[in-house]
Design a binder for these strands. Structure first.
Lengths: 138, 138
DNA sequence: TCTATTAGTTGACATCCTCGACTTCTTTCG
DNA sequence: CGAAAGAAGTCGAGGATGTCAACTAATAGA
């Protein structure tokens, strides 16, 4: 399957987008005194109680990594471990009230940044963009 | 500026995309025995000889960080420091032949992954997607 | 039951990231 | 010109991230 010119320009757009997202997330994290990975974890835990293994999959990192991340966020009072009543091996990280509030601020800030970056694009095109991005996911 | 429903679904699409890109880049890096940041650096240096400070800006990290990253890539034979003849404070990291070849493989792999992910979308829509992503950059 | 598998943790080690302090070189301005 | 101010890169300390192999505890399967 040969890459077409459209694939090339799409790739280049994605690289630019990648840098923009990284920068945006860094700023948001820094304002809250957290790391990018930590705010990502808080967002993933929104309305969601995965096990450590599932959480690792969602974050795209090793499960041995998640242990330490949850430890540090627990120390900050943002996350707790909840036991699974059906399987005593499993414990499910979940947000504390404060962790939920911080996650909410993160999502708000990100939506605001997105709205601002695409403010020159019509709502119709923004919806189209969202559909095109997620196309093969559906 | 209130976020609209379009902004929300765009944000959600971007978060999914972010995870896909992270996973894709991790796989590419791992296959080459490098880290995500290292392949990013190799890509940024393609046809480009920034100073350390400019490189830090492009990578979205601190310049004190770049010193170590360039050191490690130099040890791997992928990057060298070139002196700037106009200003002796400045040295410009640049790709060795091998570094250029590795960067080329990274770009190829990424384009292939992009082409595959959006293979269900018409070339016309892929071009439209690229334009919409980069809209306010132009 | 007895074995194999799964979930989470730990320790070792490399990398990433940030901060403040430092050296060297360049620019500015008195 | 020469001293002060600024800019570029480096270094060291310290925390966070990421990977690997090895480990414990609990469950599932034969």
């Amino acid at each position: 399957m040969e890459p077409t010119p459209e694939d090339m320009s799409l790739t280049s757009a994605l690289m630019t987008l990648q840098r923009w997202m990284h920068g945006t997330r860094s700023v948001i994290a820094r304002e809250l005194g957290l790391t990018v990975q930590q705010i990502e974890l808080l967002c993933v835990l929104h309305n969601h109680k995965p096990s450590f293994g599932e959480l690792a999959g969602l974050l795209g990192c090793d499960k041995t990594n998640v242990t330490g991340m949850v430890d540090r966020l627990t120390r900050l009072g943002l996350v707790t471990r909840e036991a699974d009543p059906r399987d005593r091996r499993i414990s499910r990280p979940s947000l504390t009230d404060e962790g939920g509030a911080v996650g909410e601020r993160v999502r708000e800030a990100f939506v605001r940044a997105v709205a601002e970056r695409w403010s020159g694009v019509s709502p119709r095109d923004r919806a189209r963009l969202a559909r095109l991005i997620d196309t093969d996911r559906v």
